[in-house]
Simulated assay, not measured.
Amino acid sequence: MTRPSRLILLAAALTGILLGGCAQQQEDRPQAAAAVPDDDAYCQSRGFKPGSDGYVACRRDRDHVVTLQAQQGKRDLRKIQDYMMDNK
């Protein structure tokens, strides 16, 4: 593969990754809003009544898990981007 072909391929790959990252950021907000009823149903199915200490702790724990998953996803994306930049 010639050098110009490699550069074109790399530019196309990076453009796709960057556009995918932008699309992902736009999708984060609706997913978080859609998760609220699921968290409510989950905590109530565990026997916690809304407003009780157990319910508040359940919702806090669920929010913490979602936050950790989002952070891990961002770290994974960053690793992929770094790998692609280092292995031209």
Score class of each variant (00 low, 15 high):
G16I: 08
L18D: 10
L18F: 15
L19I: 08
L19K: 04
L19P: 02
G20Q: 02
G20I: 04
G20W: 05
C22V: 13
A23E: 05
Q24P: 00
Q24E: 08
Q25C: 03
Q26K: 13
E27N: 13
D28S: 12
D28N: 13
R29C: 05
A32G: 06
A32F: 05
A34G: 10
V36A: 10
V36K: 11
P37I: 00
D38H: 11
D38A: 15
D39E: 05
D40R: 06
D40W: 00
D40C: 07
A41P: 00
A41W: 00
A41G: 03
Y42Q: 09
Y42A: 08
C43R: 07
Q44D: 00
Q44H: 00
S45C: 06
S45I: 04
S45M: 03
S45K: 10
G47L: 08
P50A: 01
S52E: 12
S52L: 06
G54F: 09
G54Q: 07
G54Y: 05
Y55Q: 01
R59Q: 14
R59Y: 10
R59C: 12
R60Q: 14
R60W: 10
R60E: 13
R60P: 00
D61C: 04
D61H: 10
D61M: 12
D61T: 13
R62G: 03
H64A: 12
H64Q: 11
H64N: 11
T67S: 08
T67C: 01
T67A: 12
Q69E: 09
Q71K: 14
Q72W: 14
Q72K: 15
G73Q: 13
K74Y: 03
K74G: 06
K74I: 00
K74C: 04
K74H: 06
